[in-house]
Design a protein around this nucleic acid. Structure first.
Lengths: 338, 338
DNA sequence: ATGGCCCTTGGTATCGTTACCGGGCGGGCG
DNA sequence: CGCCCGCCCGGTAACGATACCAAGGGCCAT
């Protein structure tokens, strides 16, 4: 209809329906004591004048926003998207809405983001990773809402944790290769410390190799994280050029692992005949690729749904102490490493 | 520190800094007239008691939320993620934050979502697609904020549009195959009408084939949209079983196209020797796959950034009439079809 | 010296909803 | 028959920031 007129309020609806604003308010809440007939009359009146409930006023008065803040490193990552999905689905029945921000794998950006999100007064906040700036940590500690760190198992959590050890997961992968008799193993990852999970994986690789008494210097830095298929392919190219006797490659993610695989295909290097390849994340590409890629499934969807469940438990008072939910990534041995 | 104490307000900060709440308010706004010394004193006082600005109160009083609502079909889709990225980056300098919801490719779900989002009083709303329920349309028309439909070119737009014709894009793909002398062309897509863009693409395929006087019945329904790599592979399997003389395949997306490609590899069917394959979306996989996949780049990032620019233009009064920004998808002919 | 302007700061009312308290009315029970 | 309780509804104040109006002080020009 018109666009200039001021938006109707509950008072307008109340006048039209012949009730008090208070009753209109009740009619818009789920479990409130309004007779069914008046409720319907009110909703009908509201609809007729195009009234749309105003959360901003409700939020202020009730001191509740029904927001859950979430930070992820990147929107464009199937794993984090799955976590988000698990979170979103677990929260929407309760009318909780996700307020999302992405950090671009940068903890300084995370700090800005967290402050911006806290201004909106969310009921809980979920962050990815267990490493933060001092100020971020302080902000989260003072926020007086449930804080959940995910995708990691920090030594000193801020509040709750739903995650796994990236280092331990990679160790399992190294063990797998060693058990197969492969010893000249390389690691392809990003080159900065920005991606803390990627760094943890690389360090887990180094520690695991040393534990086996093996050379842990075949490290290929493939560019600024997050590295993707193209970077994975380029990194594999350099690896084949400089260390042609490499027998196995562990990539920081399935995407880079797949890129590495395609580079082998372009060069006629047999996988797994001459080189075995493994990734991380159990992306769909890992299963569909020919050969299918050995990988680790960190159950990203479950991370989200467990976090959502935890939030509801805390808000309902069923959980009163900091929880530490450990996810156990599953090693999926596929054709690319056997 | 403590978690039980009530959160400090501007009044607390004002008391501590020895100024009025009004001045504290100004200190937290960017371009307001406060002397630099008092501003710093105020911010320092705020920090010392852990004050965090409360947007909920600000939103109500100023009737501004700095939210831009966005609906996308799925979080877990690289194309929409790119659009989101373009939007987010284009809006964040202005302090506008995205309020995201996903519809799961369902316009009934979209209706619920749009209402929920409008309750938060966003300054603008961006929706994916040009088909909506009648009520969604009414809600958007009455919202008195800029409405932008994307990823489509609707005949009767609600407000602004940033998109392209899915049907026309596929026509270009058909033309490409026909020009190469291929006539027995199949289309792999989802089986329902839920994914309106997928449906548009299939219909564009049929229309284009008929325009060339070719048989447009090689249609493989690959399951509930969005179909992905696995479904693409399965669909290709069925196609090879039932219509083995097919010369070319157009898939509704690169993901399903890649799945189809892998099925060919598993069966020893040469691509493009015996079958040419094309996808849609210019996902990274299309470029990295061996052979690289012919595809269409719809410039998803640009859709987002153009939408963001449009929002700023409208909010600043530089754009006063409904805009129709047409994106021209680029046909990328790669090894899989030559 | 006085008027006027800019910069900075304060006071008051208000955004639209809901927490809280209170009251009318009808029915069940002693 | 009276009392009590539960259901349904209304009035009032308040959530915390800011729009709006106003004023004090410093500085320049007349």
């Amino acid at each position: 209809m018109s666009t200039a007129r001021k938006a109707p309020t509950m008072a307008d609806v109340a006048r039209l329906a012949g009730v008090s604003p208070m009753t209109v308010s009740r009619a818009f809440k789920r479990d409130s004591s309004v007779s069914e007939t008046t409720r319907e009359a009110i909703l009908q009146a509201a609809d007729s004048i195009g009234y749309v409930f105003d959360s901003t006023a409700s939020n202020l008065r009730s001191q509740k926003t029904d927001f859950v803040a979430v930070t992820i490193p990147s929107i464009n990552n199937a794993n984090f998207a799955e976590t988000l999905r698990g979170l979103s689905d677990g929260l929407k029945d309760r009318g909780l809405q996700i307020l999302l921000g992405y950090t671009d794998y940068d903890i300084a950006e995370e700090e800005r983001l967290v402050e911006q999100l806290l201004r909106r007064r969310p009921e809980a906040i979920v962050v990815t990773g267990g490493r933060h700036t001092a100020r971020t940590r302080r902000l989260l500690e003072n926020a007086a809402i449930p804080v959940i760190e995910t995708w990691d198992l920090p030594d000193a959590p801020i509040g709750h944790v739903v995650g796994f050890s990236n280092a331990a997961a990679v160790r399992g992968m190294v063990d797998h290769f060693v058990a197969r008799g492969l010893t000249r193993i390389a690691f392809i990852g990003g080159d900065a410390d920005r991606d803390t999970r990627g760094t943890d994986r690389r360090e887990g690789f180094i520690a695991a190799m040393r534990a086996h008494g093996l050379d842990a210097t075949r490290l290929i830095a493939a560019g600024a994280p997050p590295i993707s298929m193209r970077e994975g392919a380029a990194a594999m190219g350099r690896l084949l050029d400089t260390l042609p006797d490499t027998e196995a490659v562990i990539a920081v993610s399935d995407l880079s692992a797949f890129g590495a695989l395609t580079e082998c295909q372009r060069r006629g290097v047999a996988v797994p005949g001459r080189i075995s390849i493994a990734g991380f994340g159990d992306y769909e590409i890992a299963e569909v690729a020919v050969p299918a890629l050995t990988t680790l499934n960190p159950f990203p969807r479950e991370i989200g749904s467990r976090a959502a469940g935890l939030i509801l438990d805390v808000l309902d008072g069923r959980q009163t102490t900091p929880a530490r939910v450990e996810i156990r990534p599953e090693l999926l041995i596929r054709a690319s490493s056997r």
